[in-house]
Computed example of a mutant assay.
Amino acid sequence: MALFQVGIDVSRYQGSINWSAVAAAGKQFAIVRIGSSNNNGAYVDPYFLQNVNGAHAAGLRVGAYYYTYARTESAVAGELTTFLNALEGLQLEYPVFVDVEARSLTSLGKPQLTNLVKYAMDILNQRKWYAGWYSYTNYINSYMNASALANYPLWVADYRSSLGYTGQYGMWQYSGSGTVSGITGAVDLDYSYQDYLPTIRAGNFNGYGSDGPDMTTVSGYKLTVFGSNTEYFYTANLNDVVGYLPLGSYPVTQITKEKYNGYDWVVFEYNGGQYWTALIGDRNRLERDDTTDDCSRQLAEANAKIAAAKAALE
């Protein structure tokens, strides 16, 4: 699996951080704790906003996590009431992770605990926060049904020299005792193997807003690129360019209902992310991703033209 970025995760336990020094040390992202719970209920980490703003100012990409103790759906909702308020107005380039590792939750059993984590992530997604989950290898294997959460990105902790977890994951917390310039004491160290930002932006998650064209979700379509000058974008904005698409075909997930900024747009999958491009006739085209259906459509169109020609001669 190819490494995308190296980073850290932090909370109040790291105190005040010199984020410029962290960036100069080569760290590219930070996952920041939103908060946790105690006997008085859910609370926001006192360093949360300071860390988010500091990391962004230093040029790092940022995500967030919260430590859950919720044993019921109502407790999940209670935690999220606090943490969603704390997220309001922010933009994040990495997911919002539900950190599930508390020993007090293991007595719930795999089905119930898994359902609670899924319930939390479903709510986050509905509120337009790109959700994921975090745990460590033994906890996942013993107390979670990871296959039931496969639609959500996993950030897994495993401090061995090589990752022992054998399921799908997008990030690996490989140390809990790292040292990084700008931070006093130990800090967790992480690898990310996934660029989450294109999917976050394409789906208008994590504070990236809903401005843009009205879209229709589709299946069975592909974008065929035959011009080397086909640009692709993070959003439906010609100034938000990523680069040029290689020639080939790409699965399409959304199409515009009407022209936007003068073009019809599609959202397509490429290199594990979702991106946008404009349909321009001399560069690319939208096609059905089914040879049989395509042939049937072309035959029907040909028959219609023949029928029209015969009618004109009568």
Results as ranks from 00 to 15, higher is better:
Tyr232Ser: 01
Thr199Trp: 11
Ser177Asn: 14
Asn237Leu: 10
Tyr165Trp: 06
Leu238Thr: 13
Met171Ala: 12
Ser177His: 12
Tyr232Thr: 01
Asp190Thr: 12
Arg160Pro: 02
Val187Pro: 08
Asp214Asn: 15
Ala157Asp: 04
Asp190Lys: 07
Asn206Phe: 00
Asn204Trp: 07
Tyr234Val: 01
Ile200Asn: 09
Tyr196Glu: 01
Asp158Ser: 12
Asn229Met: 07
Asp211His: 07
Gln194Glu: 12
Asp195Tyr: 02
Arg201Pro: 01
Tyr174Gln: 07
Gly227Tyr: 10
Thr217Trp: 02
Leu189Val: 03
Leu238Glu: 13
Leu238Tyr: 13
Thr224Gly: 03
Arg160Phe: 12
Asp158Gly: 11
Tyr165Thr: 01
Tyr193Gln: 10
Ala186Trp: 15
Asp211Phe: 11
Gly212His: 06
Val218Arg: 08
Ser219Ile: 08
Gly176Lys: 07
Leu197Thr: 04
Tyr169Ile: 08
Gly220Val: 09
Val218Leu: 12
Leu223Asp: 02
Gln168Thr: 15
Gly227Met: 10
Tyr169Arg: 15
Lys222Val: 12
Phe205Ala: 04
Ile200Tyr: 00
Asn239Lys: 13
Asp190Val: 14
Gly207Glu: 00
Gln173Asn: 05
Asn204Thr: 09
Leu197Ser: 01
Thr235His: 08
Gly178Asp: 09
Gln194Val: 12
Gly207Val: 05
Asp211Pro: 01
Gly209Cys: 08
Arg201Gly: 02
Leu238Met: 13
Gly167His: 03
Lys222Ile: 10
Phe226Arg: 03
Tyr169Asp: 13
Leu197Ala: 01
Tyr169Trp: 13
Arg201Ile: 11
Tyr221Gly: 08
Val218Asp: 07
Asn229Tyr: 14
Ser162Gln: 14
Tyr221Phe: 15
